[in-house]
């Protein structure tokens, strides 16, 4: 018998809710809650991590990310300007760089820095320098693309107005175009920061001493020493403490720039 359109819609929606409830019930019944409470969500284990996971893990993740991001921003700006240069070899070099670092896994870059640079130059950089360079090199490739798009999104009339007031092209770029480009790309740039926060978990490859542990390394060490998965859950929550406010910030910025148009 044919159903009316409203009946069909109601039936379909009802089916979706039923599926959801069934899935939750099945998971709840199948899961071994005793073990989960002991091995995965153990409050005592979580409590034992508490000062260190924040003052070592969280702090280092933030420090490494900020260092990498700062370097990536600077290098990304240079690359973006090279991409927009009228000198062709600059454009080629910048394109080559961006394609290279966007195209290989960040993990490889970290391995290259952790082991390749000491081999090639016979010295090791300090941990902060190494982190800044390796995270920065990867991040700059993405940021360069974002920045180039941002600079090109600034209306041509802005450059013309600045030039017609007697500013040189470099001055106009620095005082008028780039500040506006940054406002345009603030949301995507914040996304880059979130991605970089997570990429910082690859730093463990460099071989860190205890005080240098970032969140993931800290969690893995605690996991093996305590034979318990709870530390992984705890550091996961710590990442979210960083990234969720950033994501919230992105949405706020997007809403604000939508209003300014």
């Amino acid at each position: 018998m044919a159903l009316t359109r409203r009946q069909r819609a109601r039936t379909f929606r009802g089916a979706q809710y039923t599926l959801l409830v069934v899935a939750i019930v099945v998971l709840a019944l199948v899961a071994d809650w005793g073990t989960i409470g002991r091995r995965l969500l153990n409050p005592e284990v979580a409590a034992s991590l508490v000062p260190d996971v924040l003052v070592i893990g969280l702090k280092n993740t933030v420090v490494y990310t900020v260092l990498g991001f700062a370097f990536a921003l600077g290098l990304g700006l240079v690359l973006a300007l090279m991409k927009l240069s009228s000198v062709a070899p600059y454009r080629w070099l910048a394109n080559l760089y961006v394609e290279f670092f966007r195209g290989i896994p960040a993990l490889l870059v970290f391995i290259a820095f952790g082991f390749g640079v000491p081999l090639a130059f016979g010295t090791r950089f300090g941990i902060y320098t190494t982190v800044m360079l390796s995270l920065g090199l990867v991040g700059s490739a993405y940021i360069a693309e974002t920045l180039r798009a941002g600079i090109q999104a600034v209306p041509k009339g802005q450059m013309e107005a600045a030039r017609s007031l007697g500013m040189s092209s470099g001055r106009a770029m620095a005082s008028i175009v780039i500040p506006q480009a940054f406002r345009i790309i603030l949301p995507p740039l914040t996304n880059e920061l979130i991605l970089l926060t997570k990429d910082s978990s690859l730093i463990y490859l460099l071989g860190l001493s205890l005080g240098q542990y970032e969140l993931t390394k800290f969690g893995r060490e605690a996991m093996s020493s305590q034979a318990n998965l709870t530390p992984i859950v705890v550091v996961g929550v710590c990442y979210l403490i960083i990234t969720i406010p950033l994501g919230f910030l992105v949405r706020r910025l997007e809403a604000r720039s939508a209003k300014a148009r």
Binding site: G157, Q158, E160, A161, R163, S164, L165, G166, S168, Q180
Partner: peptide
Amino acid sequence: DRVRRKVGMVFQQFNLFP
């Protein structure tokens, strides 16, 4: 750039710095 200092220009689309 030296000449442009002495020549003001007003555009159709204003082009103020937002």
